[in-house]
Simulated scan of single mutants.
Amino acid sequence: MLIKAEDLASIIHSGTAPVPKVLDVRWHLGMVNARKNYDDGHIPLSVFVDLDRDLSGRPAMVGARHPLPEPEVWAETLRSWGLDNDSHVVVYDESGGTVAARAWWMLRWAGLRSVRILDGGWQEWTRLHLPVAVGPGNPVWPGTFQFVGPSMPVVDADGVAGCSGDGKSLLDARVQGRYTGKEGAQIDRRLGHIPGAKNMPALDLVSDDWTLRPPEEIRSVLAARGVQSPEDAANTAAYCGSGVNASFLVFAMEYAGLPGASLYPGSFSEWGADLSRPVEAGA
């Protein structure tokens, strides 16, 4: 599920088959020009991915900020990146994998099986002084990908309403201040969290060097939130503000041997926009 920077560099340099398609998913909330990051420097042969445009359907006037695209629209995007159904893919970001995981989840959702995240991301690549390309990137020959999903568990707002208690868990991947509604800018229509959710900040599973924490540490952190076994994981749903960092919780859980968690793609941006749904504030 992870690949080391030096291993990816070796594969790209040697051309050893299969050379993976590399997707650059560097993005953060409020970013104005993600393309400039890519043009200024990126992993050779990587394809620029715009999270707002490519990893999201068109948001409604009020509702989810990053809704899932329609399957055929998503399949066309994958074809434009040169992907086939048997492609091997590596995704990277500069956020410890917490953003790249959105691409990982969506690729898996569409039916791709060989998808890995670059451990340590862009920071690790540049720390090791590995080759960097600049400019708009190379032309891509269109692929033949066909959507064969959905292959990842998804839950909607109505399903989330029953995802706490009776052996079920609901995890909120946002930073604590946004979970409590006490700190940070008001990004969504309301402040706080979905009732019954436990705060599990995605970045708590990332080490200081931006690599993913070891599986045993991830399991320990999740156990404190009541997720201790694969059965617990299968009864867990994850959300965040718009379905990005929550994808990382799903990834980290699977990496740690706790697969099967569901993603709530609409997340709090969708939940909070519906004024008929309750919201809690505080810890």
Rank of each mutant, 00 (worst) to 15 (best):
V115G: 03
G63T: 12
K36D: 02
A64P: 07
W109N: 12
P59E: 10
L107N: 07
V90A: 03
L112A: 11
V89M: 06
K36N: 00
V32W: 00
P59K: 09
P71N: 12
V73H: 06
G97P: 07
V90Q: 10
S56W: 08
L55I: 02
I43D: 09
V115I: 12
K36A: 03
A75F: 12
G41P: 03
L68E: 09
V91H: 01
P59Q: 11
R65G: 01
L51I: 14
L29F: 08
M31V: 10
A64S: 15
R116N: 10
M61S: 11
R102K: 14
D54E: 03
P59I: 13
V62F: 15
G30A: 09
N85Y: 09
L112G: 08
D39M: 12
G82R: 07
R108A: 04
R113H: 11
S95H: 07
L83A: 03
A34C: 06
Y92H: 04
A60S: 09
L29T: 13
E76N: 09
F48A: 00
D54Q: 00
G96H: 05
N33V: 02
E70R: 15
V90G: 04
G96I: 10
P44R: 06
R53N: 12
W105M: 07
S114Q: 15
R65I: 08
G111T: 06
F48T: 01
D84H: 13
P67A: 13
P44M: 08
N37Y: 05
V99W: 00
L83R: 12
W105L: 08
N85R: 14
M31Y: 04
A101C: 04
E76M: 02
R116H: 08
A101W: 00
L45T: 15
G82T: 12
G57W: 10
S46E: 04
V91E: 01
R113Q: 15
Y92M: 06
D52C: 03
S56A: 15
V91T: 13
V91Y: 05
L78G: 01
R79T: 02
W74K: 09
V89R: 07
G57A: 12
V91C: 11
P44A: 11
L55C: 10
H88K: 05
L45W: 06
E94I: 01
A101N: 02
R53H: 14
W104L: 07
V90S: 10
D52Y: 00
P67Y: 00
D52N: 13
R116E: 09
D39Y: 00
W104E: 00
D54V: 06
L68T: 15
G97N: 06
L112I: 10
W74P: 01
D54K: 01
H42M: 03
L83Y: 12
P44T: 12
E72P: 05
S114W: 15
R35A: 11
N85C: 07
Y92L: 05
R113S: 11
H42L: 02
G111V: 03
L51C: 06
